[in-house]
């Protein structure tokens, strides 16, 4: 006898577990975060001083994307209680009851296993190990441990978001070098000003959810100062790929110009402390920081993808 009847009747207890469609499962992957992960991993792949067959590169990026999605699903499983409280996250599938927490957990674990094994088969064990570490770091170290316990949560947890270019580089070369670590450093230092700009505006949300973000714990003034300091460090480190030969002249010009713009927006956040203007300045920094990271990695993708550096030394 089949355990599932076809008769359209009132669902019994437990039937809620069959509620979600593919769209809800796709939302569990955090598609927007995944797109940034794929883009930075692509940059890592292209920056590598070896040529990778397009099929291997595509399969590796797919595995990295699946790994990022798995980490997102595990994050949504664990954080369903606080996601339900915050306006930015209350429409996620688990707090809405469309996906049961247990379903999100097994979906995330299964996807993580498939992603890591696929990368081991298509690329190499180092890349697969780094991907497994990235998922572990995001799901366990950041989500389960740091997020609810320290205002340095996104500083340390930012390592998970910074690893994809290292994984991409490792998939191509089978090694970790200064070239890929400098890309790691850029995303790692970029993370605090990016998230704290948002946290300044959404501090009420985080306070209600009991998440100790920097503005809630150390105050808005200290957060503004740290945003400025991190942005200054970021603008300097973002230029480093140029002398290292990872980025060419196009990259250097963009890194300097966009870095100055980042400092400008961070300075405005530091100076504008009251009313709507303060929130607007913070949201402008938040928005520009996304564009900033995209521009840096787009420059690397264009330079290496089109062979500008290899052919003309640009």
């Amino acid at each position: 006898m089949s355990l599932v009847s076809r008769e359209p009747m009132t669902p019994t207890a437990g039937a809620v577990e069959y509620a979600a469609g593919p769209r809800e499962y796709f939302a569990l992957l955090k598609p927007r975060v995944m797109s940034l992960v794929v883009f930075t991993a692509l940059a890592g792949l292209l920056v590598a001083p070896v040529s990778v067959h397009p099929v291997i590169a595509f399969a590796s990026l797919l595995a990295i994307a699946a790994g990022a999605g798995a980490a997102g699903a595990l994050n949504m499983w664990w954080d369903a209680d606080i996601d339900a409280i915050m306006s930015r996250t209350c429409n996620r599938p688990v707090p809405l009851g469309l996906v049961q927490p247990r379903e999100a957990l097994f979906f995330g674990l299964t996807l993580a296993l498939i992603a890591v094994m696929s990368l081991a088969v298509t690329a190499n064990l180092l890349a697969a190990g780094l991907l497994a570490f990235t998922i572990f770091f995001y799901a366990v170290v950041y989500t389960m441990w740091l997020k609810r316990s320290t205002p340095q949560n996104i500083v340390i947890g930012g390592a998970a978001g910074a690893l994809p270019p290292v994984v991409g580089y490792a998939a191509a070369t089978g090694s970790v070098t200064l070239d890929s670590l400098v890309l790691f450093a850029i995303i790692f230092i970029w993370t605090p000003p990016h998230f704290w700009a948002l946290a300044l505006v959404k501090s009420g949300d985080y306070a209600r959810a009991g998440v100790p973000m920097m503005p809630n714990v150390k105050g808005a003034g200290r957060t503004r100062l740290e945003i400025l300091l991190y942005t200054l460090a970021l603008a300097a480190i973002a230029v480093a790929p140029w002398p290292l030969g990872v980025g060419g002249r196009i990259y250097a010009a963009l890194a300097i110009a966009a870095g100055l713009a980042m400092i400008h927006f961070a300075w405005r956040v530091y100076r504008t402390r009251q009313g709507r203007e303060a929130n607007r300045a913070a949201m402008q920094l938040f928005g520009f920081s996304i564009l900033y990271l995209f521009l840096l990695f787009a420059a690397l993708v264009v330079e290496h993808g089109s062979g500008l550096i290899e052919r003309y030394g640009l």
Partner: peptide, 24 residues
């Protein structure tokens, strides 16, 4: 009180979502 031996009963929406999941 449906007979528990008959298992879980799905609504038409759940059936549709299950079919879409299987296709995906």
């Amino acid at each position: 009180e449906p007979d528990p031996r008959q298992g879980v009963r799905l609504t038409p929406q759940q059936e549709r979502n299950r079919r879409l999941r299987n296709i995906a």
